[in-house]
Every structure is written in structure tokens, then in C-alpha cells.
Design a protein around this nucleic acid. Structure first.
Length: 490
RNA sequence: GGUUCCUUGGCCGAGUGGCUUAGGCACUGGUCUGCAAAACCAGUUACGGCGGUUCGAAUCCGCCAGGAACCUCCA
């Protein structure tokens, strides 16, 4: 089978065959959240996108080291001297210790991301725990002559860098255009040039998040943590760097510049960027204030939500779009995903009901190839899901007796569903998970179903319907099948 | 203003030169059922506009319209 994975590399703007630097091993770095607010639907997208990548690479038998950072130092609120550390600001508002705020939102992030069945990364480094490493990177950049100190702060000299290296290789920006379009800042700037960016910022007196350095008591600049931590855990050059498209410029561009100077080589071989989730056609984001938190999705407690949506519904919804496309939030789409997922789940749980025949007249091997082809084409999860729905149709047809399958093909079909739906897409199709039922409840339900069955045998339709309808009122759906009735919670 | 990108049927969302009627949801008809539900079978609705390249374009090129992201923190 073809297991040649092609991924879209932002550097080349083309799909490229993935070839790891070290055979059999993959170093993957993904920009994690800035923990100063509740995790929202936008945070779920990269988490799930790169979870899919991590799971698929693992399935392909690569040994993956997946590093996803926690940004807890806080980026600058605004440029220039009036810049204020975002986390410190929030802390003052809440009258909490900065690290208390950070811990709270880190826990919250873990809690909700875990509910989405996202596997934990191999290493989850915090920026605040790597101040020393960041200072080391700054020193090396100063030593190589691409940074200067100014009033206790250190800035990266973009124009000088651009003379020797291609600044803008990732984002496709040209420095001439940037020069013409740089905002004019009020007041005096410590920077020699508007394009320069901070590697170290001297902390203002009221600034409570601060660390000592040879330049000043302060804090590391916006983009430094990823350069420092990717180097520490994945080496100077690693395979894949991921993150949201909104980080492409300036964050990732600056990261490349820093790492390139510091290490003398470009950091990542492949850059992958997930697109945004939109709401009413606009990006869902913290700064726009139009985000819906994951907690609100799971509880339904938001004006825009017609109902609560389970974590698996949210995950499935996100996977139904290819990661490089924008995905528009909407209740209709969520509910369509919910129903589709339910159908997929039901078929998966009915695999054991499929009768085995001598001969197969279904082509399971072809299905498997198609599933791999979908993922190999830049993780095209919607295509994969389409193929899984073909499998659903096959499963249902097999149970209905329209087609037949032999033992070997059935085993293959089961492994396809397990591998692609459960292991790679990371869907939890366990009926207990979906409905929250337990064994005792099932015993009670079986009793009621037996009573209804008896009533039907006696043609006591009134009683039979009463049981069904009353259960429906309580949120249980009864499904009559060839070999008896089953139930589920709606 | 600069850079990049998008516009597919009722909704979401794939596709990238010539049968994919992708798939999901919704809808319609049929089978099944005591009636339903579920399931199965069948079916309807499409490629923003204009021009060009081509034997042939949703798919390539140009223009126009509308929208978005980035250029400041953002997933």
C-alpha cells in the first residue's frame, strides 16, 4: 500500500512528500495556547489538526516526539514602551498572582482539550520555565551581530538580517513592502528601525512578571520561546513546525530569523498552518470578542448555541473540514455533524452483528487504499470521513443482507474502522461514551424492551406504544431491528 | 494602502481540465414495520459575474463583484 504522506509546506506553498530528517523519527513542534483566557473553539482546531497528524505519523510507525508549548510569559500587549505583559495585566485585574492565572487557564486548557480526545504531547514546555534558554539564544544572536541593546531591552535587527538571509521566506513578504507599511509609532522608540522586534524587554516598574538578565530585569520577547524550546527538545533542525495561520507573520517569520542566526541553519523542514474557524464569516478570536468557549459548547450556555454539543461532535465537526480551509461555525452544521457521527458510531458498534458468508461481494481492500490515499493527501480528513461513510453503508447493507462478506474481509473491515475512525481520527464511538449509560441502566432498559416485546406479541399496541413513547419523552430512542430492539439516548 | 487567500446545490464541506451525480445533514418517493423510528433502495437542487485559452473547464488565464486572513496580541 502507498504510505507516502504528502503535506502542504507553507515554505514552498506546495504539497511535498514528507521525508523525515532522521529515518523513522519525527520531531514535531506546535505553537500552543497563550494561557490567559478560557479555551475556545479556535484553540480546538490546531489541537485537533496536529493531534491527527501525530496520530497518523504514529500509525505509520514513526517514532514521534511531539512538543507543544504553553505560552505563560505573555506577549506584549502593544508595541513600544507602553507595552504591557498580557498575563501581568490580567493578573492585576483579577488581583491574582500571574502564575496563579497561568495555572488556572493551563488547567482549563488541558481539561477541555482532553475532552476532545486530543492526545497529550510528548513534552509540553512552558516559556516561564525556559528563561535561561531564551537568554542564551539572545546572547548568541548578539554575538553574531544581529541584535543590539537599547535602554535595557534587546532588539533583533531585521534589515541587517535581510542583507544576509531571506527575511520573509515563510510569509512571502518583501522587506521593502514592510518598510513602507510599518506603522508610525507615537513617541520615541528604542528601536533603530520599526521592523526590529524585541528579544528582551525591560520591565516597567509596575510590571510584575520579570526575570533578571544582564540587560535588565525584564522578560523575553514575543517570538523567542519557540526558538529556544524547539531547539532544546528537538534540536537545531527538526521536521515539522505547526500552528495557526494567524501566527505565520510575524511570529513564525521572526522565529525563523532568530533560529537561523542563532543556529546558523533554518529550523524546521516543513511548516504547517491550520486555517481559522469563523463565525458569521469572521475569524473567531480573542481580540474580536466573538469566540465561544469550549465550556459553552459542551454546556450549550451561549446565545449563539441552540443546544449543547458533545466534545466528540465538536471534534467530528472540525475533522469534517480540511485543516487548511476556513470552517464556519453554525448550529445547522454542528447538528449535521452530530447526526452523522451518531450514524458512524452506530455502524461501528454493529460490526459484530454482521453475518459471515462464504464469499464477499464487497471490496474492502479498495476501501482501505482510499482511506490511506485521503490521509496521504495533506491529511484530507473530510475525504477520509466520506470513505468511512461508504463503510457505514456497507456495514448496514451487510446487516440488511443485501451484500455478503467473508471472514477475512470482515476482519479487514473491522480493522479499517478501528484504525481510521478510532485510532487516527481519534473519534470515540463507544456507545457508553456517547450516551453515558451504564450496565444497570441497560438491564432496566432490557426489561422494558422485553415487556414491550411481550405486549407486541399479544398485539397490545397501546401498551407497546406507551412504553416506546414514554421512553421517547425521557430521551430514549427505541429501534426495532431484525433480531430484537435496541435503544440509545437521544 | 501592501501581501496572501477564498466564493461549490437548502446548510456544512470535498474535488482541480473530459462519469466524482464526493460525503454528511435536510428534503422527496419506495421497501421494511401493527404504526413509527432505524435501516435499505432510488431521486431532486451546484460550481459569484464577464471574457479568454482549449476539441472540452467548477477545475487554467484575465478583468469585475463580494468576502476573509495577515501587516499589532491572537489558534
Amino acid at each position: 500500500m502507498n504510505k507516502q504522506l504528502y503535506i502542504y509546506n507553507t515554505l514552498s506553498r506546495e504539497k511535498e512528500l514528507f521525508e523525515p530528517i532522521t529515518p523513522g523519527r519525527v520531531g514535531l513542534y506546535v505553537c500552543g495556547p497563550t494561557v490567559y483566557g478560557d479555551p475556545h473553539l479556535g484553540h480546538a482546531r490546531p489541537a485537533i489538526t496536529f493531534d491527527l497528524l501525530n496520530r497518523y505519523l504514529t500509525h505509520l510507525e514513526y517514532k514521534v516526539r511531539y512538543v507543544r508549548n504553553i505560552t505563560d510569559v505573555g506577549h506584549l500587549e502593544s508595541d513600544g514602551d507602553e507595552g504591557e505583559d498580557k498575563i501581568a495585566k490580567k493578573a492585576k485585574l483579577d488581583e491574582l498572582e500571574p502564575m496563579e492565572v497561568v495555572q488556572h487557564y493551563t488547567n482549563s486548557y488541558h481539561n477541555f482539550i482532553n475532552q476532545l480526545n486530543v492526545k497529550s504531547p510528548s513534552i509540553e514546555p512552558r516559556a516561564s520555565g525556559h528563561i535561561i534558554e531564551q537568554i542564551e539564544v539572545i546572547k548568541s544572536i548578539i554575538d553574531k551581530g544581529y541584535a543590539y541593546e537599547s535602554n535595557g531591552s534587546v532588539y533583533f535587527e531585521v534589515k541587517k538580517y535581510n542583507n544576509d538571509f531571506p527575511y520573509g521566506i515563510l510569509s512571502g513578504r518583501k522587506i521593502e513592502d514592510l518598510i513602507n507599511n510599518t506603522r508610525t509609532l507615537d513617541g520615541q522608540s528604542e528601536k533603530r528601525d520599526g521592523l526590529d522586534f524585541a528579544l528582551w524587554k525591560k520591565a516597567a516598574p509596575e510590571h510584575i512578571m520579570r526575570w533578571p538578565s544582564e540587560w535588565s530585569d525584564g522578560f523575553p520577547g514575543w517570538h523567542l520561546e519557540c526558538s529556544a524550546m524547539s531547539k532544546k527538545y528537538l534540536g537545531e533542525q527538526f521536521d515539522i513546525h505547526g500552528g495557526g495561520m494567524d501566527l505565520l507573520f510575524p511570529h513564525h517569520e521572526c522565529e525563523i530569523a532568530q533560529s537561523t542566526v542563532s543556529n546558523g541553519k533554518t529550523p524546521a523542514k516543513y511548516w504547517m498552518h491550520n486555517n481559522m474557524i469563523t463565525i458569521d464569516g469572521q475569524k473567531m478570536g480573542k481580540s474580536l470578542g466573538n469566540f465561544i468557549t469550549l465550556e459553552q459548547f459542551f454546556s450549550g450556555n451561549h446565545d449563539k448555541l441552540e443546544k449543547a454539543y458533545s466534545p466528540m461532535t465538536v471534534r467530528f465537526f472540525i475533522l469534517q473540514a480540511q485543516y487548511r480551509s476556513t470552517l464556519d461555525f453554525g448550529n445547522d452544521a454542528l447538528q449535521a455533524a452530530e447526526k452523522g457521527l451518531s450514524r458512524l458510531s452506530e455502524a461501528f458498534n454493529n460490526l459484530d452483528k454482521i453475518p459471515i458468508s462464504e464469499k464477499s461481494n464487497v471490496d474492502i481492500e479498495a476501501l482501505k487504499e482510499k482511506c490511506y490515499a485521503a490521509l496521504n493527501d495533506d491529511l484530507n480528513s473530510p475525504i477520509l470521513i466520506a470513505h468511512l461513510f461508504d463503510a457505514v453503508k456497507t456495514i448496514n447493507s451487510l446487516i440488511a443482507g443485501n451484500v455478503t462478506i467473508n471472514q477475512q474481509d470482515l476482519g479487514l473491515l473491522k480493522s479499517i474502522m478501528q484504525n481510521f475512525a478510532i485510532d487516527i481520527l481519534g473519534l470515540n464511538l463507544d456507545p457508553a461514551e456517547a450516551s453515558g449509560n451504564d450496565e444497570k441502566l441497560d438491564d432496566v432498559m432490557q426489561l422494558l424492551l422485553t415487556m414491550r416485546s411481550d405486549a407486541k406479541s399479544n398485539k397490545d399496541w397501546a401498551m407497546a406504544d406507551k412504553i416506546r413513547d414514554e421512553l421517547a419523552n425521557l430521551g430514549f430512542v427505541i429501534k426495532d431491528g431484525a433480531e430484537g430492539a435496541t435503544w440509545e439516548i437521544k
